[in-house]
Amino acid sequence: MLSKSLTAPILPAAPCPAAAAGRADACPEEEFRAFYDRTAPQLRAYLARCSGNSSVVADLIQESYFRLLRSGFRGQGEEHRKNYLFRIATNLLTDLFRRRRGAESTQMEARPVMAPDDRLNLRADLSAALGTLSPRDRQLLWLAYVEEASHRDIARITGLRESSIRSMIFRARARLAGRLREAGFRPAQGGKA
C-alpha cells in the first residue's frame, strides 16, 4: 500500500545537477552531516515514540538515511527533503508494524488503557499514554504537535489523503485527551507570563 503510488506526489523533478545524478556520492559529506545533525534527533524521537521500541530505532535511522541517500532526492529545500526522510521512516514503521502484527501482535498496541489512578509524572508514563493509541494515530499526532507539520505535509509523509487528515487528527486527539484525563494528566499552565 505504501509504495510507489504514495511516493509519487512528493517527488518533483530534481532541481540540481547533483540530484540529477541521483546518487549518494553526489551529496557531499559536509552537506550530509549538516542535514543529519539537524534532522536526526527529530527523526530519532519520532521513530522511538511512534514505534514504542527503542531497540529498533538505530536501525531504522540508518535505513532511513541510507534510502534517502540512495534515492538521490534533494527536493526543493531542506524542509522538503526532511519531509521525504520522514516519509521513508513512516514507511519503515509501517513495515515494522506489519511484521510485528504477524509475529508478536505488538506489545504497545496490545497494551490496555491505563488505570484511572495512574499518574503521568514519569517519562515512561508519557510514553505509555502514547502507546495506547494506534500506530497511525501516534504518527499523526506526533507530526502535528511536535513537528508542527501542515496537513499537506502530514498527508505527504503518511501517504494519506490531505482531505482526511483533519478529521483523523481530530479523532486521534480526542482519544489521547481522553486517556490523558483518565490518567490524571494536567497541562502545566504556570510558566512565564
Binding site: 515514540r49 530505532v57 499526532l141 504537535y145 490523558l180
Partner: peptide
Amino acid sequence: LLASFFAQLASETSDLP
C-alpha cells in the same frame, strides 16, 4: 492538554538510544 503532553514527551530524550 495535548500540546503540553507532547512538549514534555519531546523534551524527554534521556531514554532514547
